[in-house]
């Protein structure tokens, strides 16, 4: 069924984000024409995203565009108003609770601040999914947990409580926890937010290494464009509820769309204005307190 592969080096070649004829099931997650509203705000309207298997896919966009919301839709924590989300070809929102839980056991998710359970120590946090879902003997649990902690470089913290960890360390422990059950897909929400440059580098290398070593699918949602683009195989840029650009990082950088340019280069003002809409500056200054 597969035609001979021909790598076409022309500009319009199907990039990582478009489906190729003859390879219909390359995408592990497919978001099709999704619309979602929160209160009166339309967060998504006609969103289309394909996440290829085994690659690192970045979904980028300014704060408040709905990146976290997108992850919650993808994992069945929220339901879209329109459209569907397929994970391994199955519609997430027509699954029963049992199916949904079975799907989630194949996923690992890293929340914005790690979301470690505050009443358990580091070891027990990583052991948590194992204890909840398996009857493994204590010796094996210990082995798995220490291996995962070692992989993120934090085996030494095993008896510390989450409150004693720095932001970067908490995220690495959360990575170890997400890896504990050997997921096929791992999802990161703002893995670099609020980190110092050294911790950023550590986390970036870990994301890349886990993806390559274990051959899992990685989805990273972030506004740290430069850093994430350095490890991503393909990227999506969302703004105003839609994908405005997609492709390999180089393709995004060359994109002529001024919004894409503003976002990729981090300029303060541009199509996305620096000023929140308001009355005229000088009028407001002179207008006195009654305005």
């Amino acid at each position: 069924m597969s035609e001979p592969r021909h790598e076409v080096p022309e500009r319009d070649s199907p990039s990582c984000t478009e489906s190729k004829v003859g390879e219909p099931d390359k995408a592990i997650v497919e978001i099709q024409d999704v619309a979602f509203t929160r209160g009166a705000t339309r967060i998504f309207d006609g969103l289309n995203i394909r996440i290829p298997r085994g690659k690192i896919t970045a979904v980028m966009g300014p704060s408040g565009t709905g990146k976290t919301t997108l992850l919650r839709l993808m994992t069945g924590q929220l339901t879209p108003d329109r459209g569907q989300i397929l994970v391994e070809g199955k519609d997430v929102h027509s699954m029963s609770r049992t199916e949904l839980y079975a799907m989630r056991r194949k996923m690992g998710m890293l929340f914005q601040n790690g979301a470690l359970l505050t009443d358990l120590d580091v070891f027990e946090n990583v052991a948590f999914p194992l204890r909840e879902h398996t009857n493994l003997p204590e010796r094996l649990i210990r082995h798995i947990v220490l291996t995962k902690l070692h992989a993120v470089g934090l085996r030494g913290t095993w008896r510390m409580m989450p409150s004693a960890l720095s932001g970067g360390m908490a995220r690495r422990v959360a990575m170890a926890r997400a890896m504990a059950t050997d997921p096929e897909i791992i999802i990161y929400d703002e893995p670099l937010g609020g980190l110092d440059p050294i911790s950023m580098g550590v986390i970036l290398r870990l994301i890349k290494r886990l993806n390559d070593a274990l051959n899992i699918t990685t989805i990273v949602v972030s506004h740290d464009v430069q850093e994430i683009a350095s490890i991503a195989d393909c990227s999506y840029l969302i703004s105003n509820g839609k994908v405005i650009a997609s492709g390999k990082p180089d393709e995004l950088r060359e994109n002529a769309n001024p919004i894409v340019q503003q976002f990729m280069t981090g300029m303060a003002d541009g199509p996305v204005p620096f000023h929140y809409p308001g009355p005229d500056y000088s009028e407001q200054l002179l207008g006195g307190s009654s305005e």
Binding site: Q77, R104, F111, L117, T118, F128, E132, A174
Partner: peptide, 22 residues
């Protein structure tokens, strides 16, 4: 409430653990 505010309950949901029961 804090477990919800800090996404601990959502994290449990994502680990296929029902926070109501756990």
């Amino acid at each position: 409430g804090l477990m919800r505010a800090t996404d601990q309950l959502a994290a449990m949901e994502m680990m296929a653990v029902d926070p109501i029961r756990r």
